[in-house]
């Protein structure tokens, strides 16, 4: 670890000490693993009939079409809505007119502070209840759009502000109007910087679709119940579902990393602060 800010390259004594630590860690990990495996075996969780369902085509179909597909659909609709909303709010936040900037700022701060689940519950009570099976679906999509739109507004704003100043000045100098400068000069360049941050936000959106469980929305989290009620395999079901979520998210993350390398290079991914005055101060200071 010669490259760490915390440590020097270890000497012979330290190397020996680290070896001891390594052995101890491995032993502890093995002990933990053994404990978990024994506990699972003890409660008969490795029995074939508890896992067989995950190799049965009929149930795989069920998990895929009732679980994965609705989850992806909700995430896709949510992120689309979020991008549109984020674009409007983000550009609104850097508007020159106070009467545009202030409300946009307020909306962004508000929806970043309200828990997504509360928005879902609320939409469910005013809309979802009355619209059958598609009701909860759209409640989830709207809640995700609003929350992630507010987050993406910050990404868009930071992305646009990250475009070198000379670009806008040159555009004005050749006589472009304000809207032309934004749409033709700034946004196309900003998109490149923003795409990785947007994909990261997709991971958040995808995870948050699971919250629809509370309002009986479809999705990967909701398929657990029928499965464990039929097969009494509570533990395997949740382990497998978690694995599916993790796989999809890692795939998205890999895409984000690839895009980052391809389009942005070594520069750090756009960081978005959470909520509050201190953060917004700093993020304006950074660009």
């Amino acid at each position: 670890m010669a490259t760490s800010v915390l440590f020097d390259a270890p000497g012979p004594k330290t190397v020996r000490r680290h070896r001891v630590y390594t052995v101890v860690t491995v032993l502890v990990l093995l002990a933990l693993l053994a404990l978990v495996v024994m506990r699972l075996a003890d409660r008969n969780q490795f029995a074939g009939d508890k896992w067989e369902v995950f190799t049965t085509p009929r149930y795989l179909d069920f998990i895929f079409f009732k679980g994965v597909v609705p989850t992806l659909k909700m995430a896709a609709c949510g992120i689309l809505g979020a991008i549109v909303l984020g674009l409007v709010l983000g550009i609104g936040k850097i508007s020159e007119h106070q009467w545009v900037r202030r409300p946009c700022w307020a909306i962004v701060e508000l929806f970043r502070a309200i828990p997504v689940l509360m928005l879902m519950i609320f939409f469910f009570s005013i809309y979802g209840i009355y619209h059958g099976t598609s009701g909860p679906f759209w409640c989830v999509v709207w809640a995700l759009s609003l929350y992630n739109g507010a987050v993406l507004a910050e990404v868009f704003r930071a992305g646009i502000l990250a475009v070198p100043k000379g670009q806008a000045e040159a555009a004005y100098a050749i006589g472009m109007r304000k809207s032309q400068v934004v749409w033709i000069i700034l946004l196309p360049q900003a998109v490149k910087i923003m795409i990785p941050a947007i994909i990261s936000q997709m991971v958040v959106t995808l995870k948050d679709t699971s919250l629809g469980y509370a309002i009986a929305a479809p999705g990967l989290t909701a398929v657990a119940r029928p499965l464990y009620l039929e097969f009494q395999n509570h533990v395997p079901v949740y382990l497998v579902l978690a694995a599916i979520y993790i796989a999809i998210n890692l795939l998205l993350t890999a895409v984000a990393t690839f895009v980052q390398k391809r389009f942005v290079g070594e520069r750090k991914q756009l960081q978005v602060a959470m909520v509050g005055e201190a953060q917004s101060e700093r993020s304006t200071g950074a660009v």
């Binding site: 995870k207 699971s210 919250l211 469980y213 989290t221 657990a224 978690a242 979520y245 998210n249």
Partner: peptide, 9 residues
């Protein structure tokens, strides 16, 4: 990468 809800459930 696991949804919080899944952990709680």
């Amino acid at each position: 990468n696991t949804p919080l809800l899944l952990i709680l459930l």
